[in-house]
Every structure is written in C-alpha cells, then in structure tokens.
C-alpha cells in the first residue's frame, strides 16, 4: 500500500499543474474578451471562399 504515496503525490502534481495553467491563462488575459475570438474564428472560412472565387475568375479569364 506504500504506492499510495506515489499516487497521491502524482495526483497532487497533476492538480497543481492545472492550477498553474489556469492562473497563467487568467494572467495572459485570455478571459478578457470572450466574444470577439468566437466571431473571428469564423472569418477564416470566408477568406478561403474569397480566394476560391478569385482563382475561379482567373481560370475563367484564361479560358
């Protein structure tokens, strides 16, 4: 049962790891603006679409 020292030790280290990670995310301001990133994420698709249009146009022009 001495293994309990290891398991508890490991679990606390993991927990402390998450705790530090949380503090870091707060400090770096990741929760300051919770709206804009959600919108921004969707823009990448739009940009790709636009590029597709352009390439299509180019192909059409070449024809």
């Amino acid at each position: 049962m001495e293994v309990v020292y290891i398991t508890i030790g490991v679990s606390i280290i993991v927990a402390v790891g998450f705790f530090i990670a949380f503090i870091k995310t707060v400090k770096s301001g990741q929760y300051d603006d919770t709206y804009t990133p959600a919108v921004r994420m969707l823009f990448d698709d739009e940009l790709v679409l636009e590029k597709d249009d352009q390439t299509n146009e180019q192909i059409n022009n070449e024809n």
């Binding site: 300051d32 603006d33 919770t34 709206y35 804009t36 919108v39 921004r40």
Partner: peptide
C-alpha cells in the same frame, strides 16, 4: 496587425 475587442 489589428485586433478588435468587441465588448469594449
């Protein structure tokens, strides 16, 4: 770069 903060 330009970054928008929408709520603010």
């Amino acid at each position: 770069t330009s970054i928008v903060n929408f709520p603010k």
